[in-house]
Design a protein around this nucleic acid. Structure first.
Lengths: 150, 150
DNA sequence: CGTTGGGGTTCCTTCAGGGAACCCCAATTG
DNA sequence: CAATTGGGGTTCCCTGAAGGAACCCCAACG
């Protein structure tokens, strides 16, 4: 957790960071998304400290993006994305698109996405939920909303 | 900076986190995007420690997402987004969409986006760069890419 | 020529991350 | 039926990053 609490800020970026902005959290979500749902798997894959992994998983469960679910008669658990958590993967997909473009270098992107709808390997693009046209930073005006701070 | 270095991982999420994953960095980028380009402004707006703000700004400049530019004959500087940095705002826009949906509560979203192309207040949606149809976590297969680790 | 204001730097304290060791419990093994 | 194994943590210590306040430099300005 950041030392400063972002959750009370009147900003959806800050609030989202409160959920998944701590170090490792996005990578934990990535691992779970690609099917590594168990503590030992994630710990081994990331090389994260067990202590921190425990904290992050609990935090993500608390925030409702993961569900802790027993998978055996023995006390064994796996972590699965909730609906809320699955939608959070959108953020990771955009990070992948940016990282692929700007940081992958000669070797090319480490992973590719194949889109079920068209069968092609492609990447994610931002569009307007209203008109469907591209929608990036320079295509918008930012206005105060109903939940703006006084 | 996270204690563990993410920049060498064969993962575009980890690499992107190396650029903007430290605490405060996304909020600094947000402030600069909405026009608060000077040290004192950002520091006052966020309530961030001056030391940390200095570190973050230098890091973002080093990574090529910000440019430090004099704006006066006096030694005064402002920070502006590069092209690379503007594209990184995509990540924030998706975080806003998620935070607005899942965390805004009764009060509603703190800010609204008006899309220039259609003039409507809306939010960002993920689509496939190839076919244009929606593209979310469940709509893709993840495949190893050319830059995958051995 | 003292003050102000932007843009930092220094210093100290506290707390989070890294890493290793340890623990509990259910099932399997000899 | 004791001993072992393995999943899923918890505890401990050490280091380093975040918070916060004080300080600094320099160019105008009054």
């Amino acid at each position: 957790m950041q030392r400063t609490d972002f959750s009370e800020m009147a900003c959806s970026i800050a609030r989202t960071l409160d959920v998944m902005g701590e170090p490792w959290s996005p990578l934990i979500l990535r691992d779970i998304f690609v099917g590594m749902s168990r503590f030992e798997q994630i710990q081994a894959d990331l090389g994260i400290s067990r202590k921190v992994l425990t904290e992050r998983l609990n935090h993500l469960v608390d925030r409702g993006v993961l569900e802790r679910r027993p998978y055996d008669n023995r006390p064994r658990y796996e972590y699965v994305l909730t609906g809320k958590g699955l939608e959070l993967i959108d953020v990771l997909m955009v990070m992948v698109a940016w990282g692929d473009k700007w940081l992958a270098g000669e070797a090319g992107p480490p992973v590719l996405y194949r889109h079920h709808a068209c069968g092609e390997v492609s990447h994610v693009e931002l569009s307007c939920s209203h008109c469907g046209k591209p929608m990036h930073a320079n295509d918008i005006d930012v206005l105060p909303g109903p939940g703006a701070a006084v």
